[in-house]
Design a protein around this nucleic acid. Structure first.
Length: 279
DNA sequence: CGAATCTCCTGGAGGC
DNA sequence: TGCCTCCAGGAGATTC
């Protein structure tokens, strides 16, 4: 389940492709979350990859050429992985989409559960419905305690659900939501608008720390995530609470608890994490 | 508007 | 070995 650190790691792994020209596009299984545009094998060849950006968990690949320009938007969904191959090795079962470059390198998207996406955007991408109403990037200064408290002001839902809402802040998925709440000492069920500015400060800081740690580790090592070189080279991150039901809290030794919040499994320590208005 | 629920999909784990 | 059920989960769509 790629979260923001994995997507950013993927982006960095693909940077060698910047400046290259597309040779061919192959669509093997066009039905991802939305259909892959069928015109890509005609549109992309001859275009140059000018830059690779990331917004939230979307990878934005800027292309241009004599015939025009556009942005290839890629999303990994929850089981997606992009490999950078030196050669177009025979595709395997869930290898749905290839972009081959003129030097022989191939960007290959594999996505068994097909929650991912490949789209073609033209014009001002920030106006695209998928991107237009996204909240700030968690690692930018724009995401700070003042902003967060204001964004949560009218929200009564659980804080865990709130920080997973891309309109509040992007890139905080289920794993890092549980982790950063534990590290902030905030109970996941706390109503979002009950957080004091001080607790918002703590939460913002811990979200940034948690994401940065994962980023520095090259993404967390989830079983269906691999880097662009195809190797599962990342060490298993040691989580404080995620996936540790009934195991001892690393801080107080009491058993980690689990519950469902917004249809998602949520892990927390009832002793270390406090609800409500705590200074 | 906010909040909760539904939905897409497949592979892996566990039960018998 | 096979079959069944449950679970994982990003985030848009739908409903209330």
């Amino acid at each position: 389940m790629p979260e923001l650190p994995e997507v950013e790691t993927t982006r960095r792994g693909l940077l060698p492709l910047v400046g290259r020209v597309v040779h061919a596009v192959t669509i093997r299984h066009p039905t991802l979350r939305w259909p892959i545009p069928t015109h890509l094998p005609q549109t992309l060849p001859g275009m140059t990859l000018n830059s690779l950006r990331r917004r939230a968990k979307y990878l934005l690949c800027d292309f241009s050429g004599a015939s025009g320009s556009g942005i290839l938007l890629l999303h990994l969904g929850m089981s997606g992985r992009i490999q950078l191959l030196d050669d177009a090795y025979p595709a395997e079962k869930h290898d749905h989409f290839d972009v081959a470059f003129s030097d022989g390198q191939v960007l290959r998207l594999r996505d068994p559960r097909r929650f991912g996406a490949v789209l073609w955007l033209q014009g001002n991408a920030s106006n695209h419905p998928l991107l237009a109403s996204l909240g700030p990037e968690p690692l930018e200064d724009e995401f700070n305690a003042k902003y967060l408290q204001k964004a949560l002001a009218n929200k009564t839902l659980a804080i865990k659900n709130a920080i997973m809402d891309g309109h509040v802040v992007v890139g905080v998925g289920n794993i890092y939501a549980s982790e950063s709440l534990f590290r902030s000492g905030i109970h996941p069920e706390t109503p979002a608008n009950h957080l004091s500015l001080k607790r918002c400060e703590k939460l913002v800081a811990e979200i940034k720390l948690t994401l940065n740690e994962a980023l520095n580790a090259g993404g967390s090592s989830l079983r269906d995530f691999f880097g662009t070189n195809g190797l599962p080279g990342y060490f298993q991150q040691s989580y404080f609470v995620y996936g540790r039901t009934d195991e001892p809290c690393r801080v107080c030794d009491k058993a980690i608890k689990t519950m469902r919040l917004g249809q998602r499994s949520t892990f927390f320590c009832a002793h270390c994490q406090k609800r409500g208005l705590v200074a």
